[in-house]
Computed example of a mutant assay.
Amino acid sequence: MDIRFISKPLVGLAVLWPVWANIAQAQTPAAAPPTNTQTQAEPAPFRSALENYQPYTDEKIAPWKAANEQVDRNGGWRTYAKEGRSPASPAAAPQADPHAGHTKP
């Protein structure tokens, strides 16, 4: 039997043995954490997400004639249109032209 056939794997095993030992040691779990001897806190009481649920109810709708008369008493549709153009509205503020400095070559 040829000794070289057996000796090469043995030499390789002897060379790599320290590497394998370090890897195996690194993978061993650490010591178990100390156990907690204190009592655990009581869990919070169950509260349903639906406990304050209010079912949908239809609103009382005024007759259309009464609604139109109320709009007339308030000043008509122009009064409601002016509310949309109030000076507090950001759309009513004058805006500078963002393309004012651009020129064609």
Score class of each variant (00 low, 15 high):
A49G: 12
Q27L: 14
P45C: 06
I61D: 09
P43C: 00
Q70R: 11
P63V: 06
I61T: 10
A44T: 07
W17V: 14
N68L: 13
W64H: 07
P29V: 03
T35P: 12
T39N: 14
A66F: 05
N52E: 08
E59R: 00
A62N: 11
A31F: 10
A41H: 03
V19G: 06
T57W: 05
P18L: 04
A66W: 06
Y56A: 15
N68C: 09
S48E: 01
N74V: 08
E42W: 10
P18E: 04
W17M: 14
R73V: 12
G76H: 04
S48I: 01
A30F: 02
A30H: 06
P43G: 00
L50V: 04
A32T: 01
T57G: 06
A67M: 12
W64V: 13
E51L: 00
Y56E: 08
Y53M: 13
W77S: 06
P33W: 00
Q38L: 06
F46M: 05
V19D: 03
N22E: 07
E51G: 00
K65W: 04
A49I: 02
A21K: 09
N22A: 14
Q25W: 13
Q38H: 04
W64A: 10
F46W: 09
G75H: 01
I61H: 08
A49W: 02
A44I: 00
T35N: 11
K60C: 06
F46D: 03
T57V: 15
P43M: 00
A30T: 11
R47P: 04
Q40D: 04
P34R: 14
G76Y: 10
N52F: 09
G76S: 06
G75Q: 00
L50S: 08
N52K: 09
Q38P: 00
P29E: 07
N68I: 10
Q25Y: 11
R47V: 00
I23G: 02
N74G: 04
T39L: 15
A21F: 13
A67N: 07
F46N: 03
P29Y: 01
P33E: 08
I23V: 15
A31D: 06
A26Q: 11
G75P: 08
T57D: 13
V19I: 15
P63F: 10
D58Q: 13
G76L: 05
N22F: 14
Y53E: 03
A49S: 04
I61F: 02
E42D: 09
T39C: 03
T57A: 15
V19W: 12
E69Y: 05
T28K: 15
Q70I: 08
A21Y: 13
S48Q: 01
W20P: 05
Q25D: 11
Q70A: 12
W20K: 02
F46I: 03
N36L: 02
N68P: 05
T57Y: 05
R47Y: 00
K60G: 09
E51A: 01
V19F: 14
A62Q: 06
P55W: 04
Q25M: 11
R47W: 03
G75I: 05
E42A: 13
A67K: 09
Q54H: 11
V19H: 09
Q38W: 01
Q70V: 04
